[in-house]
């Protein structure tokens, strides 16, 4: 343990009030860079999820009948590198960040008992959210008419029940008015790949491992303050 650390442990208040000299130096050295970093953050064009305007649906099968759960509470944001211009889109990789989240309890089938079994299977008490994080986005096709979508191939990480899996899916992007973007897409996953045992009820029914996720996600440009 260094003398400084020993001193800090002995008298933490004094240590905090008298930070080491190198911090002053480092702060002063970084100050000129601050305007650039602020500007860089501002330049990314951010769109936030619009409440009550999205829909995610999970479809599955069982030995009795098909089932589905839905939710409209699809939160998160997407932001694009300013170099990506929706008016003059260039095919290829797009620099973008995107985080999407949904609370498991907000997925509902309309049957409370079944929902409770589903939440339990998804270990909801320990893992309350489903998260999606985009890792790569490639524009495959620009719209050929004003109403047509931008077509992307995406790669990302999906976190369900605490287990992260990499997924790929095609995503369509529709421009809605001047400041809104709607993303749509669907993909299939296996419950077991997230450590979820497909719910079974004593020889009455058992659910299939494959489920299909379909979404429509509306985002609106964040107002500049």
């Amino acid at each position: 343990m260094t003398a400084r650390l020993r001193a800090a442990n002995a008298n933490p208040e004094k240590y905090l009030m008298n930070p080491p000299r190198f911090l002053y130096v480092a702060t002063l050295a970084l100050l000129p860079l601050l305007p650039f970093s602020l500007r860089a953050a501002q330049d990314w064009v951010r769109y936030n999820a619009v409440p009550n305007s999205s829909k995610v649906r999970v479809d599955g099968t069982s030995t009795i009948h098909d089932w589905s759960v839905e939710s409209t509470a699809l939160g998160g944001y997407v932001e694009f590198d300013p170099a990506f211009d929706l008016n003059k889109p260039a095919l290829g990789k797009v620099n973008a960040h995107c985080d999407v989240r949904i609370f498991v309890r907000q997925l509902k089938s309309g049957k409370t008992d079944m929902d409770n079994v589903m939440y339990d299977s998804m270990k909801e008490k320990d893992h309350r959210r489903i998260d999606y994080r985009l890792t790569e986005m490639t524009l495959k096709e620009a719209p050929k008419s004003p109403d047509a979508p931008f077509l992307f191939d995406t790669k990302g990480e999906l976190v369900v029940a605490g287990v992260t899996n990499k997924i790929q899916m095609p995503v369509s992007l529709f421009r809605i008015g001047a400041d809104k973007l709607k993303f749509t897409g669907s993909t299939s996953v296996k419950m077991t790949s997230f450590g979820i045992t497909p719910p079974t009820k004593l020889a009455v029914f058992s659910t299939g491992d494959d489920v299909k996720l379909t979404f429509e996600w509306l985002t609106a440009k964040k107002e500049q303050k």
């Binding site: 409770n116 339990d120 299977s121 045992t197 497909p198 719910p199 079974t200 009820k201 004593l202 020889a203």
Partner: peptide
């Protein structure tokens, strides 16, 4: 025979 209980029983 009873299938093993895999999910929570209601």
């Amino acid at each position: 025979t009873h299938a093993p209980v895999q999910a929570a029983d209601l």
